[in-house]
Amino acid sequence: MNQPASAYFIEERHDPNETHTLSVLVQNEPGVLARVIGLFSGRGYNIESLTVSETESQKHLSRITIVTTGTPMVIEQIKHQLDRMIPVYRVVDMTLTKRSIERELAMVKVRGQGEHRVEALRLADAFRARVIDATTESFVFEITGNTEKINQFIDLMRPLGLVEVSRTGVAAIGRGPEGM
């Protein structure tokens, strides 16, 4: 091919990515979650985890917890873009407050017999996971904790007969007496 290619400048940016947890208080109305998700996909932002549920039914308020990654400038953009949506009341960057607690719940199904089964139960005990379903050849464990702890537990279960996992995604709340 001797046809000159259309070579283009590509500005590369090497700002390091950060992971932030955002709490977003929204009016619970039709389409509000689609707006939030559409913003992320439309503008090319990342969603690592998303948790949403109505938290104050009288006032029709829902709380969305989003774990996202991006450069500091992108994270700032995400917050502003969320905040300017009409049904959004507040956006709080839980990571910046440095005073937040983050928890996730996972249900982990493990299948096995003999020594594997005993080992799984022993580890579950060490992680304070509860058995919420059992058969002669399987367990379902319920485990709560931060993302890292759950990842670690799942990794340990893998060689012991891990079948499947269902996770809620991260929920976050600030420490101390103040609300968001």
Binding site: E11, E76, Q77, H80, D83, R84
Partner: peptide
Amino acid sequence: RVDAFSPGSKKIHIDIDPSSIN
């Protein structure tokens, strides 16, 4: 090119939309 945009200036930005800032 953004990394060569007005390199020596202090910039004041007035905007009603916070998402336009930075």
